[in-house]
Write a protein that binds this DNA or RNA. Structure first.
Length: 428
RNA sequence: UGGGGUGUACGUCAGAGGCUAGACGGCGUGAUUUGGGAUCACGAGGCCGCGGGUUCGAAUCCCGCCACCCCAACCA
């Protein structure tokens, strides 16, 4: 991206929101625009960050054997009538509906109905199972209370997967595989997600786990065992038999290690069973020739929420702890480096163009005229590139001064060395 | 949906009955500058959230509404 063509002026950040400083910075610098509570536009960089998050999720789910599909965002009333959730969702007020004289529709708040409709035409025999379909698509929920900018909006990007099995043993396996993939995904996103059993620990029947990332901006609270890394629902302590229960289920006997931690819920996985397949009459032919409802699971990750969490984790501070910018992880940052040439110096400008082209789309070039270099160096902190490269009078020709924004460490490299070094950073 | 907070310029915010509503950024023009948020000059930009009231006079006081934010609740 060339800043001279990006419409960017110079940016000065004022008083930042204490609770969500980075998202406020995105707002003040025009990288996101709020239309009303919970509805945002994404500028180039946040949009690409979100896309990179998607890509990590995609790669890990594909590796785990899930199949990507795309289900409709505009969903007809009839499939919701089939599962008996149309009126419930309207009464709850969470669904955006479109009523026309030729039929009623909703903007997908979730996709259990849509996926059952999708699967029933294909999965007719036990021979076609197991399957786990996933999609990454926009979801719409009329949240009465949105929260934390993009952490909980009315329109948000979600990865939602739905597994289909013959029986509960199959479901257990699909669930286990997806759960493992979730842990890999959270590692690659630099978010240490802890699975927490969501339903009071009543095992058997329907199991569900939330993936919680410890964060001061979290909206939930969990009990975290600092010794074992196990996360627990705070409601567990309300059980009369909690001591025995913790020992039996988690082998925890020292409760003093349990600490309350604020967390962000980035994902949730469920063993659904036959609730949807039965009500929607979606069946397959089993080995014994009888028709049986699918045994289903569903699995969600809040992609835009993950993006927001990554941003809030990427704050750049000065010696006094003031927040001065953003430094994204190199494997998520769409641009690895922001190149700042001295524009008036023709040789440096030529070097910068050369460098920019060799970065093959992974660099921002600050080629704006009439902006002083000092101002550019300051502006370089708001797009979150993990590195800044300065080509000024102080550096000899053919070389760049490369600074890691997070640590402030500087090194002088030739352009080719810098390209190689930066490309390697992205692999991490 | 219960409790709390805030609405004044593009942004952050002053202004607590009195004349033409301010500051600092940002934006525009010109000059001087040019490695860690330059300086000066000039300029554009406001129905002081909306509606009603009190008053000679309201951004300011009163009533109602709306919006946004936060806490609970719910969710990814």
């Amino acid at each position: 991206m060339k800043l001279s063509k990006s419409g960017m002026g110079t940016i000065r950040i004022n008083n930042l929101d204490e609770m969500y400083p980075i998202q406020d910075m995105l707002l003040q610098s025009g990288q996101i625009v709020q239309y009303e509570a919970g509805i945002f536009a994404y500028g180039n960089v946040p949009m690409l960050v979100k896309r990179n998050v998607e890509q990590v999720i995609r790669e890990e789910l594909d590796r785990a054997g899930l199949i990507e599909v795309q289900l409709p965002t505009l969903q007809p009333e009839k499939i919701w009538q089939a599962s008996d959730r149309w009126q419930k969702y309207i009464d709850d007020g969470v669904m955006f509906t479109i009523m026309t004289d030729k039929g009623n529709y909703c903007m997908a708040p979730t996709a259990e109905e849509a996926v059952v409709e999708f699967a029933r035409e294909k999965l007719k025999s036990y021979k076609h199972l197991p399957v786990n379909f996933y999609q990454i698509g926009e979801k719409y929920r009329h949240e009465i209370r949105t929260r934390g900018y993009m952490l909980r909006g009315k329109s948000f990007l979600m990865m939602d997967a739905y597994s289909f099995d013959e029986d509960f043993e199959g479901l257990e396996e699909n669930y286990r595989i997806t759960r493992e993939a979730y842990l890999e995904i959270s590692k690659r996103l630099h978010l240490n997600a802890i699975p927490v059993v969501a339903d009071n620990g009543d095992m058997g029947g329907k199991k569900s786990e939330e993936f919680m990332v410890i964060s001061p901006i979290g909206e939930d609270t969990i009990l975290y065992d600092e010794k074992t890394g196990i996360g627990l629902n705070t409601e567990i302590l309300d059980r009369p038999d909690y001591k025995e229960y913790l020992k039996a289920e988690y082998n925890i006997d020292d409760i003093s290690n349990l600490k309350e931690k604020k967390t962000i819920e980035i994902g949730h996985i469920f063993q659904l069973g036959t609730r949807y397949s039965e009500t929607m009459n979606a069946t397959f032919t089993a080995k014994d020739g009888t028709n049986k409802p699918y045994v289903m699971g569903c699995y969600g990750i809040g992609v835009s929420r993950v993006m927001a969490a990554i941003y809030e984790n990427s704050r750049l501070t000065d010696k006094d702890g003031n927040i001065v910018g953003i430094s994204l992880p190199a494997n998520i940052a769409p641009y690895t480096v922001q190149i700042i040439p001295k524009v008036e110096n023709e040789a440096k400008m030529k070097d910068a163009m050369n460098f920019y082209e060799k970065m093959e789309g992974h660099a921002i070039l600050d080629d704006r005229n009439k902006v002083m270099i000092g101002e550019k160096i300051k502006d370089a902190k708001v797009y979150g590139t993990p590195f800044v490269a300065i080509l000024g009078d102080k550096v000899e020709e053919g070389k760049v001064e490369l600074e890691e924004t997070l640590t402030g460490e500087k090194q002088v490299l030739s352009i080719d060395e810098a390209v190689e070094f930066l490309n390697k950073q992205r692999e991490k």
